[in-house]
Amino acid sequence: MGTAPLTLSSAAAPAGLAIDVSGITKRFGPKTVVNAVDLQVRRGEIYGFLGPNGSGKTTFIRMLCGLLTPDSGQGTCLGYDVLTQQAEIKRHVGYMTQRFSHYEDLSIRENLDFVARIYAVPARAAAVQRSLDRLGLARRSHQLAGQLSGGWKQRLALAACLIHEPQLLLLDEPTAGVDPKARREFWDEIHRLASEGLTVLITTHYMDEAERCHRLAYLAYGKLLTHGTVAEVVAASPLTTWIVTGPQLQAISAVLRGRPGVEQVVAFGNTLHVSGRDARQLEASLAAVQTSAHTWTLGKASLEDIFISLMDGAKDNFS
């Protein structure tokens, strides 16, 4: 890590790791929702956590901050044991829930004040004012939380989970339903916080957000399928993608679908992305439909292509 000197790690923490867990498993009844997940997140890092609906992201995060007890696995969060030191973890973690979970019948200021009191924030009134200012909530501070629009609720939730100056932020789909400008401001804020030394674990369904993370992990059916920087994830993927331009792409895509080696055929405006994990088989299939009217270029698989391919592969294993 470049300029930020991470000298503040708790005594018990392996140097530089904010989250270090392995084999984390959670079952609800017969269903294994999180299956032996290992995860290491460095301090000061923005770590993206991706995966389809129901893949177990929320469940995993809840286990990190002591809201759920793992069935098996072990590890530490900020140097504290995730199984036994949940009280300590709660003091140093800011958790933003997927569903808005502040009091709708309290105003913005009252909600922040409540959280600040619970954490015994020193110089509370000033801390509340500071967080109102920082997130641009000051003008609305007397509005009831229940009357806020989605984007403002999300700002309140972020302010609330920052007020006790946590060392780790767990953000569960913080930008769902937020407009692009607000989303960009939100990410700027996240990067600013990370540069101050905060560690951020964030779940999202947006690929552009995934690319703004330092590193990311992809979860499907409770299993961690890949992780690393965007470049590492792309490099590790066996996926080959051809980009087709030319007339009558719709017809070509109909022909290609179902051919051996062709796993995804996706239209992007005037281009068609054709991908598969078996490069040789894919090329053979493509050769059969190539015409001079079209240009075929070997492209780079996008994150989305890779994730969908991973998910399809996992489904095959799963069923």
């Binding site: 901050c65 002591g66 809201l67 009280a87 709660k90 003091r91 973690v93 958790y95 829930t97 569903r99 808005f100 979970s101 502040h102 009091y103 709708e104 959280v115 619970i118 954490y119 609330a160």
Partner: peptide
């Protein structure tokens, strides 16, 4: 029911 419990439980209360 309102979901505020999740937040409350995530604090040291």
């Amino acid at each position: 029911e309102r979901g505020t419990m999740e937040n409350l439980l995530a604090t040291p209360v």
